[in-house]
Amino acid sequence: MSVNKEKYGKYVEKTAKKSPILKNCVKAFLIGGLICVIGQALMQLYLYLDISKETSKALVSVTLIFITALLTGLGIFDDIAKHAGAGTLVPITGFANSVVSPALDNKSEGFVMGLGAKIFIIAGPVILYGTAASVLYGVIYYICKLFM
């Protein structure tokens, strides 16, 4: 059968059930905002404990990553993320979950070629392109510094 792909694609797009974008955005805002508030509270706690600002910042990330790893291991994180969408994806929790979940999953293919090789199957691009962008920025910054 010859299907008019363009026409069919438009028809499918027009008639398909849409994501409830407003509801999704509200949930993403509330949950994403809440995670940042938890981060802010942790920051305040570590500063209160007389830890330096730089170390406190790192500890906030580490704490949030730990909580995410725990929730992912317990099988709770994906139930929250199903509702939160970008609300859990965008904060550091999304990054941590994308490292922990392949680790759990690919253990069945062994610790080296399974877990070890596939741990960055989702988060890898983030580290790669983040680092590459920062190196590029470094080169530009370095050259600018030479001439200024």
Binding site: C25, A28, G32, G33, C36, G85, A86, G87, V90
Partner: peptide, 11 residues
Amino acid sequence: VGGAFCVIAQI
């Protein structure tokens, strides 16, 4: 601000 970053991604 944290919530707003998430909303942009959600959209």
